[in-house]
Computed example of a mutant assay.
Amino acid sequence: MSRSTIAAVALVFAASLGLAACGDGSAGATVGSSTQAGSAVKDPSTVKIADSSLGKILVDGKGRTLYLFTADGKNMNSMKCDAQCLKLWPPMEGKPKAGAGADAKLINTTDLAGKPQATYAGHPLYYYAPDKAAGDVKGQGIDKVWYVLDAQGNAVKKAPASPDQGNYGY
């Protein structure tokens, strides 16, 4: 192998390791599409249960879908994520109150670099930046590690109803 081939392979390998922190990247879309969606309105003051194409799921006060990352420990953020990944999967910060259908006993926080990150049933909560409106579930099932939660705090592993949702990688 030539030096340029080895260098190219090393560069591709290093880039793939950077994406692995948020999943394996196998879903195939680009990260660049997420930056515009990061401006969608969030309301971390409340978590509640709302109807969606996946059934009744956990959302914030504005109806934005909340996700769990299966590699997180109980009440522990285990995600090793760079700045680009954090733009795509921003944590829900603060300690929300229980809204309609949510169980106040399941709400807590974990430490996120000195700030509280909301948890539900022990799962740290995250948004998915491309979810632009209440009811969007575009992050569902990405890399088989990102899922919405039901009212009991369990991962909902059902596939999204619409073929244009849930197949966005980074």
Rank of each mutant, 00 (worst) to 15 (best):
A129P: 00
Y127M: 00
Q152N: 14
S34D: 09
G153E: 03
G28F: 05
N77M: 04
N167A: 12
K80S: 15
A98E: 04
L86C: 12
A118M: 05
G122T: 01
L149G: 08
L58K: 04
S53G: 15
T70K: 14
G122H: 05
K158Y: 07
A159L: 07
A14H: 09
L54I: 04
G32T: 11
S52E: 07
A40C: 04
G101R: 06
G38N: 12
A129Y: 00
G101C: 01
G73T: 02
A161D: 12
S4V: 13
Y170I: 12
I107E: 01
L88K: 13
V41W: 09
K95Q: 12
S53C: 11
M1S: 15
K132I: 08
V156T: 02
K42T: 13
P160V: 03
K95H: 06
P96A: 01
C22G: 14
Q140C: 05
A40G: 08
L88N: 12
S39M: 09
V156M: 01
A83L: 13
S26T: 14
K80W: 14
Y128D: 01
T70G: 07
L54N: 06
A20V: 07
A100F: 03
G114D: 03
C85P: 05
D60P: 00
G141C: 04
T5A: 15
R64V: 05
A37Q: 08
Y147C: 05
S2E: 10
A7D: 14
P116Y: 04
Q140M: 04
D150L: 01
N167K: 15
S53W: 08
D82V: 10
I49G: 01
T35P: 05
A113Y: 08
Y67W: 09
A50P: 07
L112P: 00
G63K: 05
K74T: 11
T30P: 11
D111N: 10
P160Y: 04
V145C: 07
Y126P: 03
K42F: 11
A7N: 13
D82F: 06
Y147T: 05
P116V: 06
T35E: 14
R3T: 10
C81H: 10
W89M: 02
A50H: 11
S4E: 14
S26Q: 15
L68S: 13
L68Y: 08
G32Y: 09
D51W: 10
G23E: 01
M79R: 15
N167W: 11
V137P: 07
L68D: 10
Q117M: 08
V31T: 14
L11F: 13
Q36A: 15
G166T: 06
G25P: 03
N154Q: 12
V137C: 06
A27P: 03
E93N: 09
A40E: 06
Q152D: 15
K105V: 00
K158T: 14
A121E: 00
D103G: 03
G55P: 04
K115H: 08
G25N: 07
T46V: 15
A98M: 03
K62R: 11
T109K: 01
D111Q: 02
G141A: 04
D143I: 02
S34E: 08
D143T: 09
V148G: 00
C85G: 12
Y127S: 00
L88H: 12
K56D: 09
D150W: 03
Q36L: 15
K56P: 06
A83V: 13
T30K: 14
L19G: 15
G25I: 06
K97M: 10
